[in-house]
């Protein structure tokens, strides 16, 4: 029908205003000269200056990035393996428990994951003396565990879509299972692996709750730093930090998304063209 869904469009506009007005407000107030974060006192960029000269913030950011890169990489490796297993190995002993283990962290409240990880690390240190001090290692281990299942979900969904026959064709042509994996499976699901890594990276970079339980003295990630500041109230330098993060996301994610969409479109158009020329 040609009627415009006026009501739906109105709600969409309201919804997007709801999504973006708080963020816009935060950006505007990051240029606020006043020390009172919510009262406008003229334009200023002084909070950005103070942010960049704050060694604590820089150190926290570097630690967060380090943890995110390491944990995302391991989470992607383990998560991809688990995703392939769930999509391709339909029967093996313990599959039910395995798929349960892969789903449970997705719905487990973060507080519980955090506490159980902490108690586990304390007990391990007590029993076998490892891990010694809590910090980078414990945070990274917890992040790997909790973000790998997200990677698994992405990979599994992608694997279910992909044509199994091409793997069988490779096997039929003499490839061993590990060669099939390297030559066929991994290249075809590469975009999914990449988005899995990105997701794991963001989850790690963004995590507060689990990190707050598994961290130790001296290991303050950026979210933990923000968390401790924000608990005390709204401060202008956090506005500035938030603005920078939104900017990074805007500059990083949006073009990446557009590129992905374009290449997907081109792939579709190409295959359509290929079919047509085959006729």
């Amino acid at each position: 029908m040609n009627r415009r869904p006026v009501f739906l469009i109105t709600v969409l506009c309201f919804g997007f205003a709801f999504f973006y007005i708080p963020i816009l407000s935060m950006i505007v107030y990051s240029f606020n000269a006043s020390r009172l974060a919510t009262v406008w006192g003229g334009f200023s960029t002084k909070w950005y200056v103070s942010l960049f000269s704050n060694k604590q913030v820089i150190a926290a950011l570097l630690l967060s990035l380090k943890i995110a890169v390491v944990s995302a990489t391991f989470a992607t490796i383990l998560g991809t393996m688990a995703g392939i297993v769930l999509a391709r190995f339909t029967r093996f002993r313990g599959r039910l428990l395995f798929s349960g283990l892969v789903t449970a962290p997705l719905v487990m409240p973060e507080v519980i994951t955090g506490i159980s990880s902490l108690i586990f690390f304390i007990m391990m240190a007590d029993w076998i003396g490892w891990p010694g001090a809590r910090g980078f290692t414990t945070i990274t281990l917890a992040h790997i565990t909790f973000s790998m299942v997200f990677v698994t979900t992405i990979i599994q969904a992608r694997m279910v879509q992909s044509d199994r026959a091409i793997e069988e064709a490779a096997m039929d042509l003499g490839s061993r299972p590990w060669q099939v994996m390297l030559d066929v499976t991994l290249p075809t699901i590469f975009p999914a692996i990449l988005s899995g890594w990105l997701l794991a990276f963001t989850i790690s970079l963004d995590d507060v709750v689990i990190t707050s339980f598994t961290t130790g003295p001296g290991s303050t990630t950026l979210p933990l730093l923000i968390w401790s500041k924000v608990k005390l109230g709204v401060t202008p330098d956090i506005n500035a930090l938030a603005t920078l993060m939104v900017l990074v996301v805007g500059l990083g994610v949006v073009p990446a998304g557009v590129l992905m969409m374009r290449s997907e479109k081109r792939r579709l158009a190409d295959s359509r063209l290929a079919y047509r020329t085959n006729d």
Partner: peptide, 17 residues
């Protein structure tokens, strides 16, 4: 898009409002 911005900062934005 909001998924990719920090969860903590999204909560924080409302503290400001």
């Amino acid at each position: 898009l909001p998924f990719w911005t920090s969860f903590l900062l999204r909560v924080y934005a409302w503290m400001g409002l």
